[in-house]
Design a protein around this nucleic acid. Structure first.
Lengths: 184, 184
DNA sequence: GACACTAACGAACGATCGTTCTATAAAGTG
DNA sequence: CACTTTATAGAACGATCGTTCGTTAGTGTC
């Protein structure tokens, strides 16, 4: 439900119907609507870590791992059956100007993702695949842009080439920051 | 209001309060909540064309115009006093999986923007500044990614470098598709 | 077997939702 | 001037909102 209509539009009444519980019975588990929304965000982040990050982190560090992470990221919502797209990403736009616990939760989730991405990029520098002088924050900034663009193309425009375009952009990003291969 | 809380969360009662009108008096102008939402989207698109596109289209065609368009785009919501960010962009994520007139309106608005961007890029090919073999759709795809990334950095993370990062990404995009300068 | 704890329930609360109906005053039109 | 049209208002509708309250059935614990 949160994926389809957004965390902000969740309604305890409807949710109780779907789970075949009483409103009050369900409500008692959370104590307030906001706590329920927070629980949804936390659950979503946990699944993300499980489906996107963990498999990639088991690969050897370097560009291969980074690429796997991006690929997992691009359509992780399909793997985890979120038909309305990433809950947290949608919540980021919904709450980015509404201070409070929800905004904080979203912010922390996305910050954590950025840290993980930054570390993964840094390790591709260590392996000698990316140049040591690159601006890692800028690199992650552009990674995020690629993801957002892919999601809009896929979800709003039903573009079947969204992933291909995203990977093309990723490859260009990597190529521009790769260590230059010397010809013999 | 739509900028801050989203088109979907608009409420006729609250809106009537703010405008110091009666609910029914205000309601009569639209006939339904959905029509009101559509009116908001259309108004937003009109302002976008006025503030972002029109000034840029008065510049000579080519890379300069494209760059001006991107710069106007990046923080047009400030110029037009939308403290919660672009209404249509937020609505894109809100309605991308909810079929209906609202989704259609958003889709058409963003499609129109993409067409304008594509034409502007095409004209920078005509002027000989960009290579004639570039994939214009891919170029626009990446432009959109840069915008989305900048917005998230600015709005959610309060990053003062958002625009600088966006322009750096834009410059890299242009450099990779520019006509190669031959040394004499 | 007495007792505390937990999960779930139904009923009701006041508030707000979008919408409809009727009335009224002003403005435009012949 | 008579007439229609337009803008606004007030009151009320049923529905849904998040939340509170009191109760009941089940579970675990001493």
């Amino acid at each position: 439900m949160a994926s389809r209509i957004g965390v902000g539009a969740l309604s305890i009444g409807v949710l109780a119907e779907r789970t075949r519980m009483s409103k009050s019975g369900l409500f008692a588990h959370f104590g307030s609507k906001e706590e329920l929304q927070l629980a949804v965000l936390r659950e979503s982040q946990a699944r993300f870590a499980e489906v996107v990050l963990r498999p990639a982190l088991r690969l050897p560090r370097g560009l291969g791992r980074l690429r796997a992470m991006v690929i997992n990221w691009l359509d992780w919502t399909r793997a985890v059956n979120l038909p309305g797209g990433c809950v947290i990403n949608a919540a980021a736009l919904e709450f980015d100007d509404q201070p409070g616990p929800l905004r904080d939760e979203v912010k922390n989730s996305l910050l954590a993702l950025r840290r993980t991405l930054a570390e993964t990029v840094a390790k591709a520098v260590e392996t000698g695949e990316l140049r040591p002088d690159i601006d890692i924050e800028q690199f992650v900034f552009e990674l995020n842009g690629i993801y957002q663009a892919a999601q809009q193309n896929r979800r709003l425009f039903s573009d079947p080439d969204a992933d291909r375009r995203a990977l093309a952009a990723f490859d260009r990003l990597v190529r521009d920051h790769a260590v230059i291969q010397q010809k013999e």
